[in-house]
Computed example of a mutant assay.
Amino acid sequence: MKKIFLTRTLDDLTLKKLKKRYQVEVHSGKIPISQTKLRSKIRGIEGLICFPYDKIDKKTIDLAENLKVISTYSVGFDHIDTEYAKKKGIKIGYTPEVLTDATADLTFALLLDLMRRVSEGDRTIRKKKWNEVYGAFDYVGFDLQGKTLGIIGLGRIGRALAKRASAFDMKINYHNRKRVSKTLEKTLGVKFASFEKIITESDIISIHVPHTKETEHMFNSNVFRKMKKTAFLINTSRGKVVNEKDLITALKKKTIAGAGLDVFEIEPIEKDSQLLRLENCLITPHIGSSTIETRKKMAEITMKNLDYGIRGEKPIYTL
């Protein structure tokens, strides 16, 4: 039987199916797997199932003597040196589309939480400080109705977010590499705007772009200075799109009102990160796709991508 390696376990049903087809080994130690262990395991396998926390770089790929496919359990693939892998004849599979609604739901949850200070209120009660916010204006948030949402990247998730925001009577502008059709704009109730207009006029900015050389640190101190002091930033795309050091400074100085983050430059987030101590920063542990329904669909696609790749065929979703 062909050997495959998983850098982390999947659900029982998927594992059972995989074990019927392959000789399966699953990493059971500390997550993410160390580069040393990953490199030792990759030598003799034909299929690899990995996760966003795993770094599949050139050195690791060079050690893969028999590897036919890398199937990542994620919509993103910036943790893999995809160009080098393809040069080596290794197929790449990933899992777009199925996590669109789950990620859009989380994005809107962060938006609503920030605007109405839900998590902050929870902490206030738990700290037994309820009596400190009795005044009429001691603890207030913002209405969503009439606020301007700026969406950076109107792909699948950006479009799903627009649908949710329109139900709350928000004004929606978007910026994209290419403007979408006027028909789609009308359907979604969105208007195309320049990046400059998005960052200067939005009450909430939500990022939905991949991490590339062009998008790395596209949100930095220069951008934060141009945003409204009452504006919020939400990022459920990739951590490196935002310069975290600059964001921390902007949050501390109240250059912007707050941020909601599901992704970070270093994951898991560092234990001494200043983000952990900022009341105006809402953070979640990269759970955009974390629903039972979505994770099962992702597992199924990950397995199918692996199957196709090992057979030398094109994965369902590939590059």
Rank of each mutant, 00 (worst) to 15 (best):
I31R: 10
T36C: 06
T14V: 06
T14K: 13
L48T: 00
E46V: 04
I42T: 04
Q35V: 00
D57T: 09
I56W: 03
K19N: 11
L48A: 02
A64M: 09
K59T: 12
D54S: 10
K30Q: 15
I33D: 04
L15V: 07
T14L: 00
P52R: 10
G44D: 11
S28L: 07
K20V: 05
G29V: 00
T14G: 07
L15I: 01
T14H: 10
D57S: 08
K41P: 07
I45Q: 09
K17D: 07
V69P: 04
K16Q: 14
D62Q: 15
I45N: 05
I49Q: 05
K59A: 12
V26S: 07
S40N: 15
L38G: 01
V26G: 02
K16V: 00
K58C: 08
D62A: 05
I49L: 12
L18M: 13
I56H: 03
T36K: 12
R21N: 12
E65A: 12
F51I: 01
G47W: 05
D57K: 12
K58Q: 15
K41S: 15
V69T: 04
R39H: 14
D62C: 03
S40G: 05
K20Q: 08
Y22Q: 04
V26T: 09
L18Y: 10
I61G: 04
K58E: 14
L67A: 03
L18G: 05
Y22E: 00
P52Q: 07
T60M: 03
I56R: 05
H27R: 05
T36Y: 13
L15Q: 13
V69Y: 06
P52A: 13
P32T: 01
Q23I: 00
E46P: 02
L15Y: 06
R43S: 14
Q35P: 09
L18S: 11
Q35A: 13
R39Q: 15
